[in-house]
């Protein structure tokens, strides 16, 4: 019988939290989420990553951030964390942002938005602006309430609609399948793969390798 492994999640926003929770729910007996930190964009994660890395001696951390315009995840990690990554800290980067992982489940997203899956980009990791792509697809949706929730009203400067998080979290928890989406997103596939082998308890006393 496996005991649940305590972990802390660190995320940029509510959407990333939903994605991570849904991915972790594929392995329900393995993880016990003690806390979710962040919700303040990437600045907080960048600033605190060295501290999380040191605290990883005591508890597992799963950190998720967006690549945005940076060239590659490995470079991002090296910039944010010069020292060695503790084995108990899983650092995953959505390429180029969390919305790419939503686009990757084309059939599910098509069903949710009420549009043909064929119009959804087939290589979301290559999308320069996945959020904009998602909003553009939403404009084609026949569901007025969904459009009202996800899209900013005309003339608004806000980037997203008044219930952007709520609507997308409903998609994440009710429709989105990470294993299906992983077939269309390399960054998601890698994240799931690392989660599958992630056992912070097994190496809880290991010191970081220099």
């Amino acid at each position: 019988m496996k005991t649940a492994l305590p972990i802390i999640l660190v995320v940029e926003d509510l959407l990333s939290e939903g994605l991570l929770r849904r991915m972790l729910s594929e392995y329900p007996l393995w993880y016990d989420i003690h806390a979710v930190l962040g919700h303040e964009g990437y600045g907080f994660i960048k600033k605190r990553l060295p501290a999380f890395n040191r605290a990883a001696r005591r508890i597992g951390f799963v950190v998720m951030t967006d690549l945005d315009q940076n060239p590659c995840p490995a470079l991002l990690l090296r910039q944010w964390l010069p020292e060695a990554l503790h084995p108990n800290l899983l650092f995953r980067v959505a390429v180029r942002e969390a919305e790419s992982w939503l686009l990757a489940h084309r059939k599910g997203l098509g069903r949710f938005l009420g549009i043909k899956p064929e119009v959804i980009p087939s290589d979301p990791d290559a999308e320069p602006d996945a959020k904009a792509a998602l909003l553009a697809l939403t404009r084609q949706s026949p569901h007025a309430e969904l459009r009202r929730a996800l899209l900013p009203a005309a003339g608004r400067r806000a980037a997203v609609g008044p219930d952007y998080n709520g609507a997308l979290l409903r998609f994440v928890y009710k429709v989105w399948k990470p294993t299906v989406a992983a077939r269309h997103s390399e960054s998601l596939r890698r994240a799931l793969h690392r989660l599958e082998c992630y056992h912070p308890e097994a190496i809880v006393e290991a010191e970081p390798q220099t």
């Binding site: 919700h39 900013p152 003339g155 608004r156 400067r157 806000a158 219930d163 952007y164 998080n165």
Partner: peptide, 12 residues
């Protein structure tokens, strides 16, 4: 701060 952090809130 948490309530006002919602990215769907417009300055208007």
């Amino acid at each position: 701060a948490e309530l006002l952090a919602d990215s769907g809130i417009d300055a208007s």
